[in-house]
Write a protein that binds this DNA or RNA. Structure first.
Length: 607
RNA sequence: GCGCCCGUAGCUCAGCCGGAUAGAGCAACGGAUUUCUAAUCCGUGGGUCGGGUGUUCGAGUCACCCCGGGCGCGCCA
C-alpha cells in the first residue's frame, strides 16, 4: 500500500513538539478506532471526497472489508458508522453508493482548525517522520555550450523538489553535475587555438567559444585531419598539458559566469558544483575495483559490465573504459555515486535528468547495487518542451533557444503587460514586478504540468491573467495585500490576539483570544477548508515527484479566494465576520506565498 | 527487432497506490462593476478517456494485443 503514509497517516505526536494533525489524519485515526471497536481490521483508505456532493472526505473501507469477508459492504459500512465518534469534528457519517462512507466537516471545526493553521509557523505541515540525506542532481549544463530551454525543466523541477524536501526536514545537498570534461574539449581547444577572435571573446566570451566549437565541429565532420588534430588536443588535455589546461580553465570560468547569471535570474542556488572533471582522478580506481570484484570484465579490448541475468539489460552492456583506455560518462557517473554515498553520506540520490537517459541510469544503478550500495537511487525523468509546431522547441534558424534569452524575453513581455495594466507604478517597481511575473510564469508553466508529458510552450498562455497561470496566483496574493494596505489601523480591531496579520502583531487588550473563526458564507467556508488542506498536499509532492499537485492546489486556492473576494466584503463587514475574514485573507496570502515559494516563484506586493 | 514514455472536450492539460454520474483552463455564448485592484466572478454548451480483449463488486487508472506519436539501444554525454 505505497503512499498510504502520506494519504491518511496517523502520526504519533513527538513529546514537546506538538504536531498539528490534518483533518485527513484526524479522520483516519477516528476511522481506525471505529473499525477496531466494530471488530474489523484496518482496511481501505480515507481520501478527499471525489465530489463535493459526497462531503469532504470518504472511505472505501467497507468495500475492501466486504470483499475480504464476502459480506455486503453496505451492512459493514453501517456498523462502522455506528461506532464512529464524530466528536464535533464532522456531521454523522453517511453511507452511500456501493458502501462508501462520506464525511462532512462541521463549519465550527473548520473555523477552529483554521486558527490552528494560522497560529502555526509551518502552516500545519508536519516534518517527515524519517529524515533522509538527499543529494539532488539537477540542471547539469555543459561547459562551452549555452544553457537552453532543454535545461529549464531539470533546473526548475529539481529546485522545487529541493525546496519541498528541505521544508519537510530532510537534509538536502543540491549538486550541479556540470559537463566540464569530455570529448567536446578536443574541438573547443582546437577552435580556441585556430579560430578564436579575441575581440569577440571580450565582447561575449561564451558566444565566441560556442562559435569556434560549432565551426570546428563542422570542419571535423568533413575533414579527417581536423578530426585527428582535435583528438590530439584532447589527449594532451587529459595528459595534463599546461597550455590546454589553461584554455580549459578559461572556458570553464566563462561558462560559469553565464550559468550564474541564469541561476540568479531564476533564483536557484546550489550547495556544491562537482562537475565531471572533479571525478577525473577517481576513474582509474573505479575501473580497477570493478574488474577486481568481477563486476566488470574485458570485452573486445574495452572494460564492460554485462547484465546477463536481467532480461531487460541482457543485451545492453555498459562500457566503463573504452578500447583506447579512455573513460566515458558511465565511469564518471559510477565515481559520482561513490562520492555521494561515501563522502556526502547520501542515503537517497535523485537524478533530475531527461527521459532519454533511462537506460543509462538503469545500468548505473544496477552497478551501484552490485557494489553493495543500499542508497535509494531515483531517476526523475521529464518530457520535452515543444514549440507551437509540436516539435522540439527551436529558434527560427533551427538552433537551441538559449535559456538566458528566453528568461529575458519573459521579463520583457511581463513588463509590457504591467505597463498596460498599471502604468502608474514607479520604474523600480515595474522592473521588480516584471521579473517576478516573467520568471514565475516560465517556472509555473513548467511545474503545473505533469512532468512526464511533453508540453507546448506558449507565451500567451503562461502570461495570461486568467486560467491556471503564475500571474493569476500572484494576483490573488496582490489582492490580499491590497486589502491590508487599505485596512491599515483598522485591522488591529481583530479579536485574534497574538496572531500576526499583515505584518503587525495584533494586541487587543482585555478582549478574549478567539480560538475559532466565525464562518457563515459558503465561499468563506470553502476557502477555509482549502487552507486547511495545504498541509495534506505538500508532502504528496515527493510521493512521485509531482510539483504539479501543489500547483493545482494553489490554483484552486486562488480560485476559491477570488470567489470569496467577490462574495464576501471584508473591510465593510461587521464583527465578528470582519476579523474572521481578515484572518482568512491573511492566511490565504501566507499559503500562496509559501506554496509559490516551494515552486521557486516570488510574489509581488502590487502588480 | 528490442526497450521506455505518451495518446482524455475544438485547443492546452489535470485526474498519485483501481472507487460513485471523467474534471479544469483557453476559445465560444449569456450574465455581474454605487466595490477591499473587473488583472475578477457566476452561468451555458461541449467526451464511444486511441482501439480491442481480459482481471473484479468496480477500469481513464491494472494485464495482454493492436494502431498512432516521441525517445533510446557497447566504445558521445
Amino acid at each position: 500500500m505505497k503512499g498510504r503514509d502520506t494519504r491518511c497517516a496517523v502520526r504519533t505526536p513527538q513529546r514537546g513538539v506538538p504536531t498539528m494533525e490534518t483533518f485527513q489524519s484526524l479522520l483516519a485515526k477516528k476511522l481506525s478506532d471505529s473499525l477496531a471497536s466494530a471488530g474489523f481490521s484496518d482496511a481501505g483508505e480515507l481520501t478527499p471526497a471525489t465530489d463535493p456532493r459526497f462531503g469532504d472526505y470518504q472511505t472505501n473501507a467497507a468495500l475492501v472489508l466486504g470483499k475480504q469477508r464476502s459480506e455486503k459492504p453496505r451492512i459493514i459500512a453501517e456498523k462502522i458508522v455506528a461506532h464512529f465518534d464524530v466528536n464535533h469534528l464532522c456531521e454523522p457519517p453517511v453511507v452511500a453508493g456501493a458502501g462508501f462512507i462520506n464525511f462532512t466537516l462541521r463549519p465550527d471545526a473548520i473555523g477552529k482548525k483554521t486558527v490552528e493553521v494560522l497560529r502555526d509557523e509551518r502552516l500545519g505541515i508536519a516534518e517527515a517522520t524519517s529524515k533522509k540525506h538527499i543529494v539532488i542532481d539537477f540542471g547539469s549544463p555543459n561547459v562551452a555550450k549555452p544553457m537552453h530551454v532543454g535545461h529549464v525543466r531539470s533546473i526548475v523541477l529539481g529546485d522545487a523538489l529541493a525546496r519541498v524536501a528541505e521544508f519537510l526536514g530532510h537534509e538536502v545537498i543540491r549538486d550541479n553535475h556540470i559537463g566540464d570534461w569530455g570529448t567536446q574539449f578536443g574541438m573547443v581547444i582546437y577552435g580556441w587555438k585556430n579560430l578564436l577572435d579575441q575581440r569577440a571573446l571580450q565582447r561575449n566570451p561564451l558566444a565566441e567559444i560556442v562559435r569556434v566549437y560549432k565551426e570546428t565541429n563542422e570542419r571535423a565532420a568533413s575533414d579527417p585531419q581536423v578530426r585527428e588534430a582535435c583528438r590530439q588536443e584532447l589527449v594532451k588535455l587529459q595528459a595534463g598539458d599546461k597550455e590546454n589546461t589553461d584554455i580549459w580553465n578559461e572556458c570553464v570560468a566563462f561558462s560559469m559566469q553565464d550559468f550564474d547569471h541564469v541561476y540568479e535570474l531564476l533564483g536557484v542556488r546550489y550547495d556544491i558544483q562537482c562537475g565531471e572533471s572533479f571525478y577525473n582522478d577517481r576513474l582509474a580506481g573505479v575501473v580497477e575495483r570493478l574488474l577486481k570484484s568481477g563486476i566488470a570484465e574485458v570485452s573486445e579490448g574495452a572494460v564492460v559490465v554485462f547484465f546477463r541475468d536481467i532480461p531487460e539489460l541482457a543485451d545492453r552492456p555498459c562500457i566503463i573504459r573504452k578500447r583506447d583506455g579512455g573513460f566515458n560518462y558511465a565511469t564518471t557517473d559510477i565515481a559520482t555515486i561513490d562520492y555521494r554515498v561515501n563522502d556526502l553520506k547520501a542515503d537517497t540520490v535523485w537524478y533530475v535528468v531527461g527521459a532519454p537517459q533511462i537506460l543509462h541510469f538503469k545500468q548505473i544503478f544496477e552497478i551501484a547495487r552490485r557494489q553493495g550500495y543500499k542508497a535509494d537511487f531515483r531517476h526523475i525523468t521529464f518530457g520535452s518542451i515543444l514549440g507551437e509546431d509540436r516539435k522540439l522547441m527551436k529558434t527560427r534558424s533551427g538552433g537551441n533557444v538559449p535559456l538566458r534569452n528566453l528568461l529575458e524575453e519573459a521579463c520583457r513581455r511581463a513588463r509590457k503587460i504591467i505597463e498596460e495594466k498599471n502604468p502608474d507604478l514607479s520604474e523600480e517597481e515595474k522592473i521588480g514586478i516584471a521579473q517576478k511575473i516573467g520568471i514565475g510564469a516560465v517556472k509555473y508553466g513548467d511545474l503545473s504540468q505533469y512532468r512526464m508529458t511533453d508540453y507546448v510552450f506558449s507565451w500567451e498562455k503562461m502570461l495570461s491573467l486568467q486560467g491556471n497561470t503564475a500571474p493569476y496566483l500572484q494576483n490573488a496574493y496582490v489582492r490580499v495585500r491590497s486589502i491590508f494596505r487599505k485596512a491599515g489601523e483598522s485591522a488591529v480591531a481583530t479579536p485574534l490576539r497574538g496572531v500576526d496579520i499583515g505584518g503587525q502583531q495584533i494586541e487587543t487588550g482585555r478582549r478574549p483570544v478567539a480560538t475559532a473563526l466565525s464562518l457563515e458564507d459558503s465561499a468563506e467556508i470553502n476557502l477555509a477548508k482549502r487552507l486547511c488542506q495545504f498541509a495534506e498536499i505538500v508532502p504528496q509532492v515527493l510521493n512521485d515527484f509531482r510539483p504539479n499537485i501543489l500547483a493545482n492546489y494553489l490554483f484552486e486556492l486562488a480560485n476559491g479566494f477570488h470567489t470569496f473576494y467577490e462574495a464576501c466584503p471584508v473591510l465593510k463587514s461587521e464583527e465578528p465576520a470582519r476579523s474572521s475574514r481578515l484572518a482568512i485573507c491573511h492566511l490565504t496570502a501566507r499559503v500562496l506565498q509559501r506554496g509559490l515559494d516551494f515552486l521557486g516563484i516570488k510574489v509581488p506586493e502590487k502588480m
